[in-house]
Amino acid sequence: MTSAIKNYFNDVGVLSLFIARFFKELFIPRYEFKEFLKQCYKIGYKSIPLVAITGFIMGLVLTLQSRPTLVSFGAESWLPGMVALSLIREIAPVITALICAGKIASGIGAELGSMKVTEQIDAMEVAAINPFKYLVVTRVLATTLMVPLLVVLADVIGVFGGYMGVNIHGDMSLYLYITKVFDILTFSDLLPATIKTFFFGFFIGIIGCYKGFNANSGTESVGVAANSAVVTASLSIFIIDMLAVQLTDLLF
């Protein structure tokens, strides 16, 4: 038990050093711009279908689930606004980030883990190429920028899913629906929700890289790296969300 606690704090310490190294290497040339774009494509573009489908379903289901309660209060006209609010403030960012933790953090963990195990990272090192810069900085930047964009996509598609949900029972024009959404939605809903997604993206990337980069030798450790990347990234998303919401509560 004590050794588990010791390991945990050790892990946190090493991860902090890893993060510090990221910020140190971020500003030193050479910039691996091509690899960064490639990772944006892989991380962002390739996740669009998954995020779009889940976004749509979240909007649709949330509407169908909320409708009976609002109807019983005679507040059915609040439905579009309420759904949009919960989607944009909480559900789309968190669910999208969790999906990205599952898809992206595990992918990065497995990729870098297998590069580590097959000595490809060592090969860069002995060729005097900085593997941290090429592999870690590019991937973390890509997730930090792509996860927020994917969340925005999930927001938009989720709101559209809500519109479909409303029209299962009633008949509302898209124009009216969107007017109702923006009646309720304000800038102070959008801003904190968007800011926290950058942190989600950053931690998805850095934890995936950290787990892969520090994989032990032996092929089974690739699976371990991928798995613990997902678990740690998911947990960190909830923790960041909790902190972000409390902070928002104080400030706005």
């Binding site: 050479r30 990729e111 297998s114 097959t118 000595e119 490809q120 060592d122 060729a127 190429i129």
Partner: peptide, 30 residues
């Protein structure tokens, strides 16, 4: 390190890159 070549037992080629890219990657960075 640039002056010392190291051939790994497993060869440690970069799996995600073609042969040309493996060489190009190394050459270009120096």
């Amino acid at each position: 390190r640039v002056k010392v070549g190291f051939l790994f037992q497993s060869a440690a080629l970069y799996d995600s890159m073609s042969v040309r890219e493996n060489l190009d990657f190394t050459l270009r960075r120096h």
